[in-house]
């Protein structure tokens, strides 16, 4: 997420928005954004309903056995169609923003 913030200008230059989603409350996300300097939208899905809809629930993996999201990235084009999916198999290894942007631009021919 830090990496996406660092490359946010490049994404915006290509007309691509970046948004983060987790089960954290708006207050918790606000705190995170303040402390880490994130400026893109952080959305709160406290009951993991959207996370479930995207098929990436990690049951009981959170605090007190709470259902949370497993790390994942999706690119949704302007028509609302998924054009790129990245499901890491390792918590430590997230999509690199530069690589993601390259793949996405190739997908949308931009």
């Amino acid at each position: 997420m830090r990496g996406f913030e660092k490359h946010l200008n490049e994404f915006h230059q290509h007309g691509i928005e970046v948004a983060a989603i987790s089960v954290d409350s708006p207050q918790e996300s606000n705190h995170l954004c303040q402390s880490r300097g994130y400026t893109y939208p952080f959305l709160s899905d406290p009951n993991a309903e959207v996370i479930r809809r995207y098929g990436i629930l990690h049951p009981k993996a959170g605090e007190n056995g709470r259902d949370i999201a497993r790390p994942a990235e999706f690119f949704v084009d302007s028509a609302g169609v998924i054009r790129w999916v990245n499901l890491t198999d390792d918590l430590r290894i997230r999509a690199r923003p530069e690589a993601a942007l390259d793949v996405i631009l190739r997908q949308i021919g931009g």
């Binding site: 997420m1 996406f4 994404f11 290509h14 007309g15 691509i16 928005e17 970046v18 948004a19 983060a20 989603i21 987790s22 089960v23 954290d24 918790e28 995170l32 939208p41 996370i51 995207y54 990436i56 990690h58 993996a61 959170g62 605090e63 709470r66 949370i68 999201a69 497993r70 790390p71 994942a72 990235e73 999706f74 690119f75 949704v76 084009d77 302007s78 609302g80 054009r83 918590l91 993601a100 996405i104 949308i108 931009g110």
Partner: peptide
């Protein structure tokens, strides 16, 4: 809404993360 994120954009990257519980 997803539509708000897409408005005026070519698309949006949704980053799902575990949360800082």
């Amino acid at each position: 809404a997803l539509a708000d994120l897409l408005k005026g954009h070519q698309g949006v990257i949704l980053i799902f993360y575990r949360g800082y519980w």
